[in-house]
Design a protein around this nucleic acid. Structure first.
Length: 436
RNA sequence: GACCCUGUCGUCUAACUGGCUAAGACACCCGACUUUCUAUCGGGUAACUGCGGGUUCGAAUCCCGCCAGGGUUGCCA
């Protein structure tokens, strides 16, 4: 029997990291075993079921590169893939339960499922065999008086109808799984194989909630994470790929994935490691690819991109210094704007010695005299200025850095000057001198 | 309360069926390098493996008890 897994989010208006990781583990399992990934929208709660809420989930999944073989937008043989459109299917299964004598209707009109009240064992790929004693809970409601159905029932019916072979979901469902198995049995079917994966906890140690930093996948996109980095990081929580390094691409992760190696203890979410991984991915990009992904962030910061080649080089010049795309503007804005203020440590550096003015003026002169504007010629012009002023090159460089960029950090000074061009280089040095 | 899952550096995790000095990554600290850095390189702090018993020549690993954290216990999903 070929593998069929599913991710079944309810439309809440955003994709939660925990949900994303659940989707991701399902996806890995499907791809690893050549199975099908089904996406089903659990929108039985009409109040929350909006188009915007639904697309937020789909967008999040697509951004992460998690695709589905059946579900919204792609269709499939066992649809519809929205629970809100499956009423007749549920009605049919309710009748089946009725025929089996397993339901009864309350005075209020709600329908309850009669538990078998026998011990039930969940055979779980992650947690092993977990046995629940015969329950003493009241029978569970599966249909409301208004005719709509409750989660546990529709979830089971859909998994059954959609031929789901493996249910990979958060551990918060483990305690209710016996109810699902009871339902499967009552419908004369055997339950799928379960794998309950550990929960994602916030740094405080409780279940990640909407409010926690990093809870919504859309935030990662906005803050300049690359989807492959987030994908990679999420894999590392609760599962250890057996590899030399931790930066691993999708194909490798699929190849290494083994559901039985998923841990059973919860994991806290560590944003700084996710950032570190993102930095690794940024560095691995070509200059062109990096510029393509950084560009929207430059535009958002209102930097005017006139010369693409220059902009590409500017972004590339700080590639190793940045871990999020959103950090680029603050590192490169002076390549695009002339009115960026000098940072305070730059001003104090410039004013630290009275002779700094003449040093810079000399540099301006030797740079003006350069024939061809290349990094090499810029380097020798600066060296010449230093020699003329009888100081070390190392004494002049920081001044020039501050004068040209307004910052005491950044790419090499010759690179800054080269990318700025002869004219702006000259202007900015004189501007700095006027500040002294 | 009851039931379920879990417990190794601050965090994520290693440690084959019990066997080297409990390993790595992130973070942090220090140093070096460099014209600078949130970069790079090097080094370091950090876990009596939750606690207490037991089995064993030997326990992170097996057993018991306790404690702690998380989860479930809806006419939410």
């Amino acid at each position: 029997m070929s593998v069929r897994v599913r991710f079944a989010p309810s439309p809440t208006g955003y994709l939660h990291v925990g949900g994303a990781r659940t989707a991701l583990f399902n996806w890995l399992y499907a791809r690893k075993h050549g199975g099908k990934m089904v996406l089903r929208i659990e929108d039985t709660d009409a109040a929350r079921n909006t188009e915007a809420a639904r697309s937020a989930i789909l967008d999040g999944l697509r951004w992460l590169g998690i695709d589905w073989d059946e579900g919204p937008d792609v269709g499939g043989d066992v649809g519809p893939y929205f629970q809100s459109q499956r009423q007749e299917i549920y009605d049919r299964h309710l009748q089946q339960l009725e025929a089996a004598g397993r339901i009864y209707t309350e005075d209020t009109g709600a329908v309850r499922f009669r538990f078998s009240r026998e011990p039930i064992t969940v055979h779980d790929l992650v947690c092993g065999d977990v046995t629940f004693a015969a329950t003493e809970e009241p029978d569970m409601t599966i249909r409301r008086p208004d005719g709509s159905y409750i989660f546990h029932f529709v979830n089971v019916v859909d998994d059954l109808e959609m031929g789901i072979t493996h249910v990979i979901r958060g551990e918060d469902h483990l305690s209710n799984t016996w109810k699902h198995i009871d339902l499967f049995n009552a419908l004369g079917q055997s339950a799928p194989t379960y794998a309950h994966i550990p929960l994602l906890l916030n740094p405080g140690g409780s279940k990640m909630s909407k409010r926690d930093e990093g809870a919504a996948i859309a935030n990662y996109q906005e803050e300049g994470y690359l989807p492959e980095a987030v994908f990679n990081y999420l894999c590392l929580l609760g599962w250890t790929p057996r590899a030399e390094q931790e930066k691993l691409d999708r194909e490798t992760l699929v190849a290494l994935f083994d559901a039985s190696e998923i841990h059973s203890s919860n994991a806290r979410f560590d944003l700084s490691k996710c950032q570190w991984l993102n930095a690794q991915y940024l560095r691995a990009l070509s200059d062109e690819a990096l510029f393509a992904v950084a560009r929207p962030f430059l535009v958002h910061a209102e930097l005017q991109i006139e010369d693409e080649a220059m902009a590409t080089a500017a972004v590339a010049s700080v590639k190793e210094k940045v871990s999020l795309l959103s950090e680029f503007p603050e590192w490169v804005h002076y390549f695009f704007k002339d009115d960026s203020p000098y940072e305070s440590d730059v001003v104090s550096k410039l004013r630290s010695k009275p002779e700094n003015a003449s040093l810079l003026e000399t540099a301006a002169e030797t740079l003006e005299a350069v024939d061809e504007w290349t990094e090499a010629s810029i380097q020798s012009a600066i060296a010449a200025a230093a020699e003329k002023e009888e100081v070390k090159v190392g004494a002049l460089m920081p001044l020039l850095r501050g004068a040209l960029s307004g910052q005491m950090r950044g790419p090499g000074v010759t690179t800054i000057a080269f990318l700025l061009g002869r004219e702006k280089t000259h202007q900015r040095i004189l501007q700095a001198v006027s500040l002294i």
